[in-house]
Write a protein that binds this DNA or RNA. Structure first.
Lengths: 343, 343
DNA sequence: ATTAGCACTCGCTGCTAGAGAGTGCTAACA
DNA sequence: TGTTAGCACTCTCTAGCAGCGAGTGCTAAT
């Protein structure tokens, strides 16, 4: 167990190290105004704290650095839930703007988050397995080309252009769209493929001449690829962190950031509220000396998306946590409004 | 003037350096099979070549490295136009696929180009000042929300969701869209803003009640931000190049890549064919020790887009040039087909 | 004209010494 | 008994120096 004074010292060390990125020595601590103890006393305390695993040395005669356990304790017990609400205003303003497109807002939020923190921000769109198709529209641009537009109940819009082979009859096309609209309304996106292959195929065969060609084209146009959408902000902002002084670290970081699936799997927990993973607590090896802070936001219908900041273990937890709290709340609010309008 | 033999040596040096990234010494050159001269002879020649500015030393007793002038000469005169057509097939296949969306293809081309070369690829979409609006569609999703869809003559589709304030009358909205469709057909995108502010405003005042609100919303929805679209592939692939051993270089590179406008201005020449800018030949300071190779592709109606590869001066010019040639031709072909279908 | 030989230059590696920052321990102190 | 001053010790970091290797330029011989 740590004494009061040890907690104070631990807090000072973590705060200081988060700010400076340099190991913290006893003398430096004793110089702070709210620390009335001598360097020697602090040395003794530090040895105790280290013994309990909250601190580490980078080498035998260096100052102390928080261990993962130290960060964990700091995050769990030593952070006062400071409310710097002024930071939220930037994003609040963005989101309160009457009209908006979901994706644009998310992308901007990601950029702003990264800009405010100098870490890399990641936002995971709503998980599509709850998302349902709301409406299908087909706009023909010419005799040979058309745009298919899919609108989901979350307000997400996707378009896809495709060319219409000469053999396909325009009236067939229209009939097909009607079929789609009737049958696919309120169908979960993830079940599209299945329904296409069974019911739709059957229905179409009845109504549409030259079934095969039309079917293939339409199917390709409608079944797009991404199940979840990922928004990353400020991949390069993180280079401002002093821990990125090592070229290999940069390389491995960027290599990891290119692997979308890995990142998605990392964020795909749907707990409510803030979640902090420090160092090896992360399941993915590639970020075993990073910290990842995630928060969830909610769509109008209760679905969850994830919003996260990835940075060095020496992260400004206090700032980041309150910021993420604000942003996820703002997003939830804004999306609730949007959803109500859309209903 | 350089003699035959000096040209041969220059070529060997550039080739070798491009491959190895190490300064090339006289002994190494004399060892190559097709070089029957001794190291001493080569030293003499190298001194001459350096005197004429085609080579440099990194320090007084180092091997030689091509100067910018050397690269320039190499590119202009020493590259045999090798036709490695097999590389083109990858992209050819992608593009020949019957249906496609312009943006998807471009993005994929960018990725593939970068993957094949380990440089960063940049593709500039068609310049919109020639692009004209073809059709406007408004799909209402609910009483309060709608999607505006703009289709251009290049087949580019843009959508924008916005909410409809309660005060706006649905029939007004419909009337507005009709007005837009009549008046804006074939209007260049760049003139949209202007026309909105004058003619459209005037016409709408006549037909539409509660003009002000409707107008603002529609305007905001229609005048989107990006005049040209930029596709970047493999920003992090370039980290594989040995010249990126320096953290500062990496930082400045990524900082530059974040400035879209700068990159656009860099590529906004519309010469036909391949263009190589070496080192300080580039107008932007940030890439004064990079080489930029651009090529143009053509849209069906003659508009130009730009496709480029950005890498170290020590670039595999031969490979890159032939690759860019192939890709830009493939893209031009594919887009011509698309355009004909769309007409 | 070409080449072998040689002195010279420069970067790189490894070694050493000294300075600086920090620790742990001991002994003195309140 | 808890706190502190003092001191020896440890470790990193930097500068300086020597030796090696790769490469050059020049000279003299072929």
């Amino acid at each position: 167990m740590l004494t009061e004074r040890q907690l104070l010292i631990l807090q000072v060390i973590v705060d200081d190290f988060i700010e400076s990125a340099h190991p913290v020595g006893s003398r430096a601590i004793s110089k702070k105004e709210h620390i009335p103890f001598s360097a020697a006393t602090i040395r003794n305390e530090m040895a105790d704290i280290e013994e309990q695993g909250y601190l580490e040395k980078t080498h035998s005669s260096s100052g102390r650095v928080p261990s993962e356990k130290g960060y964990r304790y700091y995050v769990d017990h030593l952070i006062s839930p400071a409310g710097q609400t002024h930071k939220g205003n930037v994003i609040s303003h963005m989101l309160k703007d009457g009209f908006f497109e979901f994706e644009q807002i998310v992308q901007m939020s990601a950029e702003v988050l990264s800009e405010l923190t100098n870490y890399t921000s990641i936002i995971l769109g709503p998980e599509l397995f709850e998302t349902k198709l709301k409406q299908v529209q087909l706009i023909t641009l010419s005799a040979h080309t058309a745009v298919a537009i899919l609108v989901t109940n979350t307000g997400h819009v996707e378009h896809r252009s495709f060319s219409i082979p000469a053999e396909v009859n325009p009236s067939d096309l229209e009939r097909m769209v009607n079929i789609l609209n009737t049958r696919l309304h309120d169908v979960p996106i993830l079940k599209l493929q299945e329904i296409f292959n069974t019911e739709i195929a059957a229905m179409m065969k009845m109504y549409v001449e030259d079934f095969d060609r039309s079917y293939d084209y339409l199917k390709a146009a409608f079944l797009s690829d991404h199940p979840v959408k990922l928004y990353i902000g400020g991949k390069s902002n993180i280079l401002r962190q002093p821990e990125f002084n090592d070229v290999d670290k940069i390389r491995s970081f960027f290599t990891m950031m290119d692997k979308e699936e890995e990142i998605i799997s990392l964020l795909k927990h749907t707990d409510h509220g803030i979640n902090v993973s420090i160092g090896k607590e992360n399941e993915v090896d590639a970020i075993k000396d990073f910290s990842l802070i995630t928060s969830s936001y909610q769509l109008g219908d209760g679905q969850l998306g994830t919003i996260a900041l990835l940075g060095p273990m020496r992260m400004e937890y206090k700032k980041v946590i309150s910021l993420l709290n604000i942003v996820s709340n703002e997003m939830t609010d804004a999306l609730y409004m949007w959803y109500k309008n859309n209903e």
